[in-house]
Design a protein around this nucleic acid. Structure first.
Lengths: 334, 334
DNA sequence: ATGAAAGCGCTAACAT
DNA sequence: ATGTTAGCGCTTTCAT
């Protein structure tokens, strides 16, 4: 059984307004070529009938969809910020977004497959897991922009944060405060773990602190931070940079519980500027990714590809910035 | 300028396989009525050409879309859980989801408007702000299910958590532990604030603790909790229920900073079972909404309406459950 | 089992 | 300025 009530179409509006469908189409698209009188009459009829253009039919007919497909993880808080930025950027450029989420029960591959049926003109992927090979296949078919994942594949555009630089900033900040014994708790197999670790090591070297380099195995969760912090306690450094905010929250708690003062005895820097970092009682110094820049660039790149404009470079790297809050300060004994 | 490469169509596959488009359609839809030989040949051709059916055209032609429109807030963590559940439930029922998000720069009304062009057969709204009047208008046109918002409007189905009961559970738990002086910090104008406050008051009365009822103005943010907790300190109760986890995090911190032990001196219960509550060092006792039940019911209801099945009641209320963690215990002086 | 042909709601090229 | 008409890529009768 069906709902019964057929939805109102262009033809219904045309009949009600006493004009042709073509004219209604012109009016609905706000295109030039209709007399003010007819325009008003059509608009009135459409309003009265509660007419909504059928996007499917519209897209089917016109050769352009002006639609950008976005794949994102619905459980990831930062993806929320990114989708927000993408809507804004796409809107400004006169494009629309069509969303497809991956979830614990619906993997990225399915999310992408679903989008592929949607006639979008380009794909913007907040990809975690799709293989480089498959991303390359995709990019061979249509413009494909991968966000925040440091991959290299033919025809795939990558827009990402300079995670190495993020850790440079963190270490620079700590060194400026007078720290020398700075450790790093890494993110194990998480996406940007390697780049962040590398950034830490580079910055330490640059400051002549090669001998102080100390990387502890960690992970993305708060109990990873808790465990790593316990390892740290046998011989505490004066500062520690942590893979992400969540892990840093675990670190903070362990340090404080064991009687250390933060930042008096030890400074802590996180990564992500997540909602946890902004809790007043955490108030974590952290590295923030620039969601707005990432999304502007992603949309710009997608549209450049769609419209065949020349672009420079497959990969665009966006600098993050340090947000100094309450967990960093000068060391007591430098 | 356009991308140039026209996408492959049914006709292309038909030509490649040497059959009619009708037959290809049958094979692609996995419908009966094609010989195994032809089926294989068509599938091979489709694979070779990288053919993807065009959902727009498909939907345009067939009278059913089997598409459920979902409006959600991309910044809201719990909405992530809900969308996850909706994908699962819809998938099991043979329906697909089409997503439209509201963001700081794209309000709910626009998100809904965009969906309306998408030919979905029903709407599932995680609505915060759309007016009851507009929701009713919507529901007059197509099946409309509103999730987690206690409204009453003609033709609108509502699936929500029993927030009053959530606070009953919280208070019952505290009373069982021996508490009598239990305060509540409310959520100001937040969505479910009134229901939760009411639940607190009802439960207190039921336990004969009418004289102990104490509601403090609060809000949804952690600094709302911080401020409210400071008010509490002049004459601390032995336990406090808080509008949500985020506010409870602020409460916890203020209490501890002022030298009180949680749960030794004072117990705290949050609401939402958010990621904050699960941080090991917060480990907050809290009321959890049952996302799975909410989403199963929402999808079921939407489909019942679409298919014209009789349903019982406009509103379905789902019980939450208490997650006991580390912030509640017996009072020292009951 | 297979194909020819009509048409979903719209846009765009072409008439008038 | 307005109407007529031909499809967009598919599904769905209806023939065969």
């Amino acid at each position: 059984m069906r709902t019964g009530q057929r939805r109102t179409t262009l033809a219904d509006v045309a009949a009600a307004a006493g004009v042709s469908t073509a004219l209604v189409s012109i009016v609905m698209r706000d295109a030039p070529g209709a007399s003010p009188a007819n325009r008003a009459r059509v608009l009135a009829a459409a309003e009265r009938l509660g007419y909504r253009p059928d996007r499917r039919a519209r897209l089917l007919r016109s050769d352009r969809s002006r639609l950008l497909g976005v794949v994102f993880g619905v459980q990831d808080a930062f993806h929320g910020d990114v989708v927000t930025g993408l809507y804004d950027a796409a809107g400004r450029a006169g494009y629309e977004l069509t969303l497809s989420a991956f979830t614990p029960g619906r993997d990225e591959h399915r999310a992408i497959g679903s989008l592929l049926q949607d006639r979008c003109e380009a794909l913007i992927l907040l990809s975690h897991s799709e293989s480089v090979r498959e991303l390359a296949d995709l990019a061979a078919r249509m413009p494909t922009v991968v966000l925040m994942r440091p991959i290299r594949a033919p025809a795939v555009d990558v827009i990402r944060t300079d995670d190495r630089r993020g850790l440079h900033q963190a270490v620079d900040h700590l060194v400026e405060l007078g720290h020398r014994r700075i450790a790093h708790i890494d993110g194990a197999r998480a996406l940007s773990s390697a780049a962040r670790r590398r950034g830490y090591i580079e910055a330490m070297r640059r400051h002549g602190l090669e001998a102080e380099i100390r990387v502890l195995p960690g992970g993305p969760r708060d109990d990873d931070g808790t465990a790593a912090a316990r390892d740290l306690l046998t011989d505490p450094p004066t500062a520690v940079t942590v893979f992400n905010d969540r892990s840093a929250a675990g670190v903070l708690d362990t340090l404080r519980r064991s009687g250390l003062d933060v930042p008096g005895d030890i400074s802590v820097v996180g990564y992500d500027d997540s909602s946890i970092a902004r809790l007043r009682h955490v108030w974590l110094t952290t590295v923030a990714q620039d969601a707005g820049a990432l999304t502007d660039l992603a949309v710009q790149r997608a549209i450049d590809r769609i419209e065949g404009r020349p672009v420079q470079g497959r990969e665009v790297v966006v600098p993050p910035h340090l947000v100094v809050r309450g967990t960093t300060g000068a060391p007591r004994r430098p």
